[in-house]
């Protein structure tokens, strides 16, 4: 039960982080959404054996985390949540693909391991970029940016309401589990035979609650348009932020900086 309640606080924590007033938070949401988009495209465009090329991409999340004062451990925990999925996808690579790729004096690394690691790094980086976007911008401002990008209103509304609905759902789950566990002291979980009725209850209760929330929105003049307030214009610094990062990402994409630095070091060493 505490896990459920805890996860609710976790969802809301991202919202709270989005309300900070750091340099990164003050960048226009549109610039941040586009920067994240470019970052995601560049990250996933790397080939599956181009592990070294991915390393300079780490600078983006590191710099954003530092400037936006985002707690590192909090972010790390959230990224860990998606890692089982990535591991699940890539876990057979090292077994199925055992051709030697990197031969060092003491170890031979197969191409399967390299592709698995690059998949893992890509997964972590993309998840991190998405989380950083939410925690430096906030959901409502992301919606504002999407609207400026001419995304149809109905999709934005779906996006915002789904996000809000998650907390309604989790709250109800918390209540049901609490009521259940208080009257079944010797059980560790929920008995299989009760799953059906509890899920049914959950559906009905959340629908009821969502209906009441919707009523209260309608009572305050909600007509399907989610107004997120003052639309701040795009300033020079926002263009600079988007341009700067985009150029950096493209340079990383076309030049393997890790290799260049490596050969430079070796050259100096010689």
């Amino acid at each position: 039960m505490s896990n459920i309640t805890q996860s609710l606080y976790n969802i809301r924590l991202l919202d709270e982080l989005g309300e900070k007033k750091t340099v990164i938070h003050q960048i226009h949401p549109l610039a941040k959404v586009l920067t994240t988009g470019v970052y995601l495209v560049v990250t996933v465009s790397f080939g599956r054996y181009e592990l070294s090329g991915l390393i300079p991409l780490l600078f983006y999340p590191i710099i954003v985390i530092a400037l936006a004062e985002i707690p590192v451990i909090t972010m790390a925990k959230r990224v860990l949540l998606v890692s089982p999925l990535i591991i699940g996808i890539g876990v057979f690579n090292p077994i199925l693909n055992q051709d030697p790729m990197i031969v060092l004096p003491w170890i031979i690394i197969s191409s399967g391991w390299v592709s698995f690691l690059s998949l893992l790094v890509k997964g972590v980086l993309t998840a991190l970029a998405a989380l950083l976007l939410i925690s430096t911008t906030g959901i409502t401002k992301i919606a504002l940016a999407l609207r400026m990008m001419r995304v149809p209103k109905v999709f934005i509304l779906q996006f915002l309401l789904t996000y809000r609905y998650i907390s309604v759902l989790v709250e109800e789950v918390g209540r049901i589990i609490r009521a259940y566990s208080l009257r079944s002291p010797r059980e560790k979980g929920i008995r299989f035979s009760n799953w059906g009725s509890l899920t049914g209850q959950l559906l009905i209760r959340t629908l009821d609650r969502a209906q009441r929330v919707y009523y209260s929105m309608r009572c305050r003049g909600f007509k399907g348009e989610y107004n997120v307030g003052r639309e701040v214009g795009i300033q020079f610094r926002d263009i600079l932020y988007l341009g700067g990062w985009s150029v950096y990402f493209l340079i990383i994409r076309y030049f393997n900086i890790s290799e260049l630095i490596g050969s430079l070091m070796i050259g100096v060493g010689k």
Partner: peptide
């Protein structure tokens, strides 16, 4: 049921903003 925005300010502003 009535409070669903991220901050109190946004929640109170929800109605007036809907009236443009």
């Amino acid at each position: 049921d009535q409070l669903f925005m991220p901050t109190v300010f946004d929640d109170v502003a929800f109605g007036p903003r809907n009236y443009q």
